[in-house]
Design a protein around this nucleic acid. Structure first.
Lengths: 211, 211
DNA sequence: CGTCTTTTTAAACGGCAGTTTGAATTTCAA
DNA sequence: TTGAAATTCAAACTGCCGTTTAAAAAGACG
């Protein structure tokens, strides 16, 4: 079913996703996109009604792709013990540290958005983030079942954020003075490390006892 | 000695810091800066040798300001118990959630940098981040004194990152479906929450011995 | 005061941004 | 095959970008 127009559209989307992820919206020109996609410049306006429309489509793709990716593994998590599920969740979150695949590009686009959210992103967050948040909440709930709704939500956000400092500063951490080699074994070690801290954090602090 | 040139320079710096923090480097035009600072457009090139030079100065100010801010409280932390020190550290980190002061602007500039680091930032990170990292490392070391250097560093980074998900997504979290009211009491509650999780995480998982 | 330096100013510059145009080409149903 | 619709294309358009210029203004100082 690959009509020629679909081919052009797809090439633009792929090139745009890479460039938007790498340099952000303002840092990406449509001339750079069409050069990478090897299509005519006017094609963006024809197919997407301008740079804004193209970005909207890319963002939607990233948003839904990421949620689908996570939710598709949601069932696996439910079959695990809570400790295994949490470790698996964190390992998946840390995955972009070593790979430069679609998932890590989507993460980068969200990083740009979190610094300066666009209206499109805000509305998607409001309307479509529930499945992903639900996933994180489900994990958290297995550790702190008695928590109220707000605590549960904050705990889920906190869990999601456990890896963000590493993801976001990947480039910085790879250089001096940190010099973290982000190969497979290091990332796995890191995942184990973070999982252990989070596990311990949830494991005993929940009952709000006195230290 | 407020020579007139110093006044102009200062007005440009202040306006630029605000705009760079809000919209990033690419999203800020020098025309917007000079309008906000109410100076002539050529003044930026005269005083800072161009937009790049101005940004470099702003970034240096943010970098050193933030480190000085943190280090100035470093002595207080040493006088506290490790639990108090950690809570105080986290509370300070979360402070930008409610205030839009200089400190929170500096954080925002770093957020832009962490998405797409500039060479200037990289070199500052390599050459001047030691005092701040040392601060975080000192706190961590009190919980995991036997940890090796790499573990200690990762733990310090992890500690620093504990609040980043909340800081970075402040705008998003304030809206539905999250709807976090970021007033003083909520932020204090959040600080207590995060501190408790981190404390528990470090408190018992650290010895990493035969579980 | 007169002269030299520092600072400010308005205007213009070249360049790249996103978009539009209208014709050429391709697609596809009739 | 034909003709209308969809798609591609090169080129031009408007506007904002960062920077430069050269002259005016303000200070510094003997």
């Amino acid at each position: 079913m690959t009509r020629p127009s679909e081919v052009t559209r797809d090439r633009i989307m792929k090139a745009a996703e890479r460039l938007f992820a790498e340099r952000g919206y303002d840092g990406t020109s449509i001339r750079a996109i069409v050069a990478k996609a090897r299509v005519n410049q006017a094609a963006i306006n024809y197919h997407f009604d301008g740079k804004d429309g193209l970005y909207r489509e890319v963002l939607r793709g990233a948003f839904r792709g990421m949620i689908a990716e996570q939710v598709s593994h949601g069932e696996e998590l439910k079959a695990m013990s809570r400790e295994e599920a949490l470790t698996a969740f964190i390992r998946r979150q840390l995955h972009p540290l070593m790979a430069r695949d679609e998932f890590s590009r989507h993460m980068r686009i969200f990083n740009w958005e979190s610094v300066h959210p666009t209206p499109v992103f805000r509305s998607m967050m409001a309307e479509e983030s529930a499945p992903f948040m639900g996933l994180a909440t489900d994990i958290v709930r297995r550790f702190v079942p008695e928590a109220d709704a707000r605590t549960l939500m904050v705990a889920a956000i906190w869990l999601i954020g456990q890896c963000s400092v590493f993801l976001r500063n990947r480039d910085t951490l790879a250089e001096p003075p940190f010099g973290l080699d982000l190969d497979e074994s290091t990332v796995e070690w890191l995942a184990q490390m973070v999982s252990r801290w989070v596990l311990a954090g949830f494991g005993r602090s929940a009952p709000a006892n006195k230290a």
